[in-house]
Design a protein around this nucleic acid. Structure first.
Lengths: 349, 349
DNA sequence: TTTTTGTGTTGTAACGTTTTAAAAGCCTTG
DNA sequence: CAAGGCTTTTAAAACGTTACAACACAAAAA
């Protein structure tokens, strides 16, 4: 409550102190509004001396551009809309990915707005709404499906977007993906190296592209080494932990039971470990488990399991890069990023 | 790609089809722009017949108000800014809380924008930025401290906000909190009921208000039952799982070691379980563990532990309610919500 | 000398709302 | 029948920015 700062109202801290506008700055600096606008925007038509004078005055007056006015005039929102699935997303994904995007967008003036989809009956409705109301310059979403209706819609309407995960559309579009095929191959091979002969994939449904990649990679490795592969239905991104556990229990628990598990996610890993514990099998002894690790917490699962990293924070950062590229109209090859699991050939940041 | 709709460009799907504005609607309906604006806003000065005609025309033309223009004119952004800590927030918190807020804000026209703090050197800078640029109508943040500088700043500048957690400021402000004092008491009592005599609280630092509440409740219960209480330093919200584990290991592991653990968070629970496993103690046998449960995944921790629920989704919904109340200038008592743990007296939603 | 070419700068017109102040209508009432 | 009091509608003025077209004024070219 100090009164060090200039306060013409003399009253409560800057309650209605009118913020300086371009006109204020223009008058003070002795230039036209247009000139000031251009000077601050870095327009090359403005003389260097003018630019300096203008930014000095703007700084002194504490000028801050009015985002709403800019938005109205230019039609650009400086907002990126992230469609997030908050249900059944229990562990690190949301916060890591979000954190990464934030990092990647820092300093660009872009804000992230969240829409938790899954609430609207029709998930396309959320996107239509964003487009119709011009709520964002670009859209991102996760859990991308092979022929995702959201992708189709956005492609048709030429609205900027990027997906977490590739699709099977022939039209190329921006994405960031993790090489799940390589991941699956690596995971299966590790289990094979431990002498396991029947691998169970605890992983999401194949309607997601990454589900297919996982399946493909796992099948490839299994065939190469002549081991049996089981990919149970009934495990999905939407599954409650209890459903996953039920699915695992429903697997033939006889002599032909799996002796190796690949868990594609922290929830799945925890549930699998609980299941194995409940039926009296110990990872590292009768069975082995390899899991995707998306945060340091996986190190504290017990019994210890092997992990292969997916850096979700890096994924978020890459996503920011891709989106900015898309908005500024970069060529498609700059907007398709495939991240490799650790230990595999990885691309530079 | 059908051409059913009017498309003067005759080109690609609605590429630059100018959206109808108030003027368009006004001309079509035969009223003044003002009238149309009022009719759609539900202004009582407009005759019922007029309102009907206007909304019919607006609907037919597919009129959608321009948010940027509204924003510029009214100064209200229809945005709520959520300051989120994405580092060291490994488990359910972010997605559950976010999901709850989304649910609570659904249909109100409010959007949530995320700022991942902890990036800026000065966390106040993030808030100043929001205020200066008018990026939001209200601010929410978590990890509230007893004399939080963010709260002080926002109170001083009379900017709408709500905190997750109470503070020790004399000036009342909007908040949503969970009754951690009751939680701690319940948790300790459960351990006492199992015959445990030395309780260790695995919980965040006391610089957070909720850390103090926890400490207070635990101490109360411990004294009432004459059991020993240990609250190790070195466990905090920012702690990496490994640090928490190190802290647990550094506790006197002799005859006076704790035989009961209260874990205030899923990360802390997992780390504690890993630690106990590593030193060969089994919950339910030599020791007992009670944890806060914020998502169904806690059911799959092994060995099984007792849990007490904190409904973060409900917290998020309550937060939305509080914020809307604050923005529309409701009395303070509507903006202070204390959620009780399950089993305790709980307030209605 | 006059014409061209730039380089900086400027007034004015939007962008699409809401709000203010005023004007019509249309009753009622003296 | 004019005066006043409603109810309903309206024109015009913002809100603060960027974009368009024009305008000075120098230097370079004719």
């Amino acid at each position: 409550m100090t009164r060090k700062t200039f306060d013409p109202t003399g009253g409560r801290a800057a309650e209605k102190l009118p913020r300086p506008t371009l006109r204020t700055v223009a008058q003070e600096a002795g230039f036209a509004v247009t000139t000031v606008s251009r000077a601050l925007a870095g327009d090359p038509r403005i003389a260097e001396a003018t630019r300096e004078r203008v930014s000095e005055v703007a700084g002194r007056l504490g000028y801050v551009p009015n985002r709403a006015a800019q938005r109205l005039r230019t039609g650009r929102t400086k907002v990126i809309s992230l469609l997030l699935n908050t249900r059944h997303e229990f562990l690190s994904f949301t916060s890591e990915f979000l954190g990464g995007m934030s990092e990647g967008l820092a300093g660009t003036g872009y804000a992230i707005t969240i829409t938790a989809d899954g609430l609207a009956d029709d998930r396309l409705e959320v996107i239509r709404n964003i487009r119709r109301h011009s709520l964002a310059d670009a859209i991102v979403f996760t859990r991308t499906e092979c022929f995702d209706d959201r992708v189709r819609y956005l492609l048709e309407h030429d609205f900027p977007f990027a997906t977490h995960g590739r699709t099977d559309f022939t039209t190329p579009h921006p994405y960031v993906d993790f090489d799940n095929e390589v991941f699956a191959r690596m995971a299966v091979e590790r289990l094979v190296a431990k002498g396991r002969r029947h691998i169970c994939m605890v992983m999401p449904n194949e309607r997601y592209t990454f589900g297919q990649h996982l399946r493909f990679g796992a099948r490839q490795a299994a065939m190469a080494h002549g081991v049996q592969l089981t990919v149970p239905d009934g495990v999905d991104l939407d599954s409650e932990p209890d459903e996953i556990a039920a699915t695992l229990r429903s697997l033939h628990a006889g002599p032909n039971a799996p002796d190796g598990y690949v868990c594609v996610g922290e929830v799945m890993a925890l549930v699998t470990l609980a299941y194995l514990n409940d039926i009296g099998l110990t990872p590292g002894v009768e069975v082995d488990v390899v899991a995707k690790r998306a945060s340091p917490i996986s190190n504290h699962f017990r019994p210890r399991i092997e992990t292969i990293d997916e850096d979700l924070r890096a994924t978020g950062r890459a996503m920011a890069k891709v989106l900015l590229a898309r908005i500024s109209g970069a060529p498609m090859e700059d907007m398709q990023i495939l991240l490799k699991p650790e230990g595999a050939f990885s691309i530079s940041d």
